[in-house]
């Protein structure tokens, strides 16, 4: 499959796309405002994947390499569209009210992702990069052109807000003193 992709063979590219696109769309969806934006990000990301396939060294997991490209693509799209910059405002973020009607208690993974997407774009992006994609605050600061301290503070606030959302959705319970959060078993 990799060999076919390197030779620009459409069937091999489609096979690779079919294998990784569902998970990568899930990644894009966490960054994007809606599904359409996520699909645009996915399309752009996979075009980069196929055009830069020769740079893959076979030294790590292919999925991780693709995911990294897709995440960077998402960030670039957000920065290009100024969607990220427009929504980093922390004051604005604090005024977010949860709509209880949107809360579903069925699919935990979907609920968690949807909960993340309830966060303001700036919070969401930092949280996605730090907590899920594993970037450091220094890397995030470089990627997003912000101060490292800003990344830290946004992450702290994002985490607090997300905890609040997840508690309201009954996905996690309120933490007791000196005890961590407990995920509810569904």
């Amino acid at each position: 499959m990799l060999h076919g992709c390197l030779n620009n063979i459409a069937s091999a590219q489609e096979a690779l796309y079919n294998r990784f696109s569902p998970r990568m769309l899930g990644v894009c969806y966490r960054f994007a405002r809606n599904r359409e934006d996520a699909e645009d990000m996915l399309q752009e990301g996979f075009i980069k994947v196929f055009s830069q396939m020769h740079q893959f060294r076979n030294q790590g997991a292919l999925e991780g390499w693709i995911r990294r490209i897709v995440v960077h693509t998402c960030i670039n799209v957000l920065k290009k569209n100024k969607k990220f910059a427009d929504s980093v405002d922390l004051i604005h973020a604090n005024s977010i009210h949860l709509n209880e009607n949107n809360i579903h208690s069925i699919l935990q993974a979907k609920q968690v992702v949807e909960s993340i997407r309830l966060l303001p774009m700036g919070y969401r992006t930092v949280l996605n990069l730090y907590a899920i994609e594993g970037f450091s605050h220094k890397e995030i600061a470089a990627i997003l052109d912000i101060e490292e301290s800003t990344s830290r503070s946004q992450y702290t606030r994002a985490k607090a807000m997300l905890e609040d959302i997840l508690i309201k959705k009954n996905i996690i319970q309120k933490p007791r003193m000196r005890m961590g959060l407990t995920a509810l078993t569904k």
Partner: peptide
Amino acid sequence: DLESLLKENADQFKMIPSKKVWHGIYNDL
């Protein structure tokens, strides 16, 4: 706990892209 919960659930999350995404990629490549 929270971060592990987020990572675990976010990694499980998948979505099926619509056909037009592949068409767009194909036409570009």
